[in-house]
Every structure is written in C-alpha cells, then in structure tokens.
Computed example of a mutant assay.
Amino acid sequence: MEHQAKLQYDASLLREALFGFWWRAITGRLLLALVVCIASFAYFWANGDRSWIVGAFGALLLFSVGMIVAVYFVHSANMNRKLKDMGTPEAIFTASETSFSVVSGAGSSTIPWSSITDVWKLERCWLLLFSKAQFITVPLADVPEEMRAFILQRISAAGGKVDG
C-alpha cells in the first residue's frame, strides 16, 4: 500500500517546527544542568566567593547559554536555506511499506522507516527525527488521517519512538 501527499511549507510553519525542536532539545537534562549551574554561580557570588570556582561556573554558564542560542540560529539558517533551495515551498511525500520518499525542488530522497528514531508531534506538524540534530518537517494540514496512522505504524514497526 502506498500513500502520497503534497506538502506545503511556509515560514510560520517552519518557525513552529524550529521552536518545537529547539525547546524539546534544550529541556530535560540540559535545562536541569543549566539551572544547577546558575544556582551554584549565584550562591558563590552572593557569599562573596571570587575564586576560580566562580569563574569556572561563570564560564560554563556563558558557554551553555551561547550553545543554546547557537543551536537555534544554526537550525534557523539551515531551514531558511533549505526553504530557499526548494524554490516552490512544496514537496511530494510518498509513504510505502518499507520507506518514504520526499521530492522537492531541492532534490529527492528515499529513506527507510528504520532511519526514523523519533516522531515529535507538534500542533501543525510532525518532526521525523533521524538523530538528535536532524529531522524532516511534515506539515499535518496536507496529510490525511489515514496516511498519518500509516506513517506512525510504519515508524513504530521499524523501532522508532512516537511521542504523545
């Protein structure tokens, strides 16, 4: 069985996808580590400690915040470049039993379902993750319910995790 949908992309959808990815990537252990670092820095600073430990916490804090901001802007630039490379902001998404294909003005790819490690469900789109830093955005407005269920079933059957 094969399903096909014509996906339409726009800047607001991609901003939602980017923010959803960024937020989920920084929450959890990274956010907890950042809070511990901030609390430690504030504790030492408030108690008048100006030793190398305070400097180390301060440097770690600056580096961490810089990395969090950089992740957002790197992915933003990458998304904008890919959108521009597409020409017309649309793609044909074809889902079969063993793989899915994406064809756009930027090129085409056929990818086995086993390459998808996670599906992150957002309000208007899904993020199909290949790794912690690579994903494809699937706008839901263009994907019929039957095709959505098929995609999730194929990803789950191949060992991918589906949130929600």
Rank of each mutant, 00 (worst) to 15 (best):
E2S: 12
E2W: 00
H3R: 05
H3F: 15
A5S: 15
K6W: 04
Q8G: 05
Y9E: 06
A11Y: 07
E16H: 01
F19Y: 15
G20D: 03
F21T: 12
W22E: 02
W22K: 11
W23N: 08
A25M: 08
G28M: 04
R29L: 10
R29V: 10
R29I: 07
L30G: 12
L32I: 14
A33M: 10
L34V: 11
V35A: 15
V35Q: 01
C37R: 07
A42M: 08
Y43T: 12
F44Q: 09
A46M: 09
R50V: 02
W52Y: 03
W52A: 05
I53E: 11
V54R: 12
A56F: 12
F57C: 09
F57I: 01
F57N: 08
G58M: 04
L61N: 00
L62P: 02
F63I: 05
S64H: 02
S64V: 01
V65G: 03
G66F: 03
I68H: 04
I68G: 07
A70F: 08
Y72F: 15
V74T: 07
A77K: 13
N78M: 13
M79T: 01
N80Q: 15
R81W: 04
M86L: 06
G87L: 03
I92L: 15
I92E: 12
F93R: 09
T94W: 02
T94F: 08
A95H: 01
A95R: 00
S96F: 07
S96W: 09
F100S: 01
S101Q: 13
V102Q: 07
S104K: 01
G105Y: 10
G105T: 08
A106Y: 02
A106Q: 05
A106D: 10
S109P: 05
S109N: 11
S109R: 11
P112D: 07
S114R: 15
S114V: 11
S115M: 15
I116H: 04
I116W: 02
I116T: 13
T117V: 10
V119F: 07
K121E: 14
L122W: 02
L122H: 02
R124G: 05
L127A: 09
A133R: 15
A133K: 15
Q134W: 12
Q134A: 14
F135L: 11
I136T: 13
I136N: 10
T137Y: 05
T137K: 06
V138K: 05
V138A: 11
P139A: 00
A141T: 08
D142G: 05
V143D: 04
P144S: 00
E145W: 06
E146N: 14
R148G: 14
A149Y: 00
I151M: 10
I151W: 02
L152W: 09
L152D: 04
Q153L: 12
R154D: 03
I155N: 07
S156M: 07
A157H: 13
A157P: 13
G159Y: 12
K161Q: 13
K161G: 01
